[in-house]
């Protein structure tokens, strides 16, 4: 979704900035027109595959649609979000997404999962990137090998880990018991204390390579002469890292973090396949899916999806603001 607003305007802005000094000549108008011409197909496709479904979802969240009667949906205003039902005897109750404790639990689970997993992935990814950036024998091979977890489809790796973490036949329990760290098998994905951490661990295993790759790209942009200068000045390598490397790759890290965070906030497949989907691990997407397709509450599920979109949009905007991220690629 975020791409819609990020993709198109910078190009236009850049074009306008170029134009301003000169009076609008025929040439620049011509160029502007051809730029729009080139952009239109992409904008149309985006509007069709991203914009339209989004607007549909938002629309349905204000109706009483159900999957068995989707065409007969009627407008009900904010009822899916907020409703006070008066029982007529002086008592009443609030209904709707805002008053659904299970929804807020799902929101909390998602945010918790995102913050922890993305933090770990960033630190580990940075470490991996630093190692992969160094010169050593067989570097190309290691670089390729590191990417394997990222290349495996989530559904496959989730199932694979589910078997490894199985309480009876799982290799994880077997190894830990042989070493003597645990005395009896642990039900990793079912136990309330370990379920979310099991998910986070698998996600870290899977997406650290992605982080490493993005940060490595940033590292390779750092010119070698700054390191040479630091070396001549006799600066300690740790200080070089904090004062030279980190500030220079900061933009790359920030972009990598937002990519990952957007992905993590809408996590579905990993949780759905790996865990038994109880209160400990249910995320916003799982909640929405359940209401959309399992229950006869398409409208309520749409409201949850809309809210999920708003949460992601809000967090993204907030992050861009705080991190002063420049997605236009101008002032570096």
């Amino acid at each position: 979704m975020a791409n819609v607003s990020m993709g198109a305007p910078p190009t236009r802005k850049a074009m306008e900035a170029e134009e301003r000094p000169a009076a609008r000549s025929n040439l620049s108008r011509e160029r502007l027109r051809s730029a729009w011409l080139f952009l239109t197909p992409m904008l149309l496709v985006l509007a069709l595959v991203a914009g339209w479904p989004l607007i549909e979802t938002i629309y349905y969240s204000f109706t009483n649609a159900s999957l068995s009667n989707i065409d007969g949906a009627e407008w009900v205003g904010l009822r899916n979000y907020w409703e006070y039902v008066d029982y007529g005897d002086g008592e009443g109750e609030y209904f709707g997404l805002f008053f659904d404790s299970q929804w807020w639990n799902a929101v909390w689970n998602t945010v918790y999962y995102t913050v922890i997993s993305v933090s770990i992935e960033t630190v580990l990814g940075l470490a991996f990137a630093l190692v992969l950036n160094a010169e050593f024998k067989g570097r190309a091979l290691v670089r390729a090998a590191v990417l394997i977890p990222w290349a495996i489809p989530t559904i496959v790796s989730a199932k694979m880990w589910a078997w490894m973490m199985n309480d009876q036949f799982g290799i994880l329990n077997d190894m830990l018991m042989t070493v003597g760290i645990i005395s009896s098998p642990v039900a990793w994905t079912a136990d309330p204390d370990t379920a979310m951490w099991a998910v986070i661990m698998v996600d870290v295993w899977k997406t650290t390579p992605f982080m490493a790759l993005l940060i490595l790209a940033g590292l390779q942009m750092v010119p070698g002469d700054v390191y040479e200068a630091a070396k001549i000045d006799g600066i300690h390598p740790v200080k070089v890292f904090w004062k030279v490397t980190l500030p220079l790759i900061r933009p790359a890290i920030l972009v990598a973090v937002i990519f990952r965070a957007l992905d993590a906030l809408r996590v579905f497949d990993l949780i759905y396949v790996l865990t038994p989907n109880n209160t400990d691990t249910k995320t916003m997407s799982v909640f929405a899916q359940e209401n959309l397709f399992q229950f006869d509450k398409f409208a309520y599920g749409s409201a949850a999806s809309t809210f999920l979109f708003l949460v992601i949009a809000f967090i993204t905007l907030f992050y861009i603001k705080v991190a002063r991220l420049d997605l236009g690629g101008k002032g570096r």
Binding site: N166, D167, Q168, F169, P185, V186, A187, T189, A190, D191, T275, P276, N278
Partner: peptide, 21 residues
């Protein structure tokens, strides 16, 4: 019951049973 029973469906419980456990 093993604590993993909280994640068992039919086939998982049959797995434990049919391996004699």
């Amino acid at each position: 019951a093993p604590s993993g029973v909280l994640s068992y469906k039919e086939e998982e419980s049959r797995g434990v049973w049919q391996t004699g456990n």
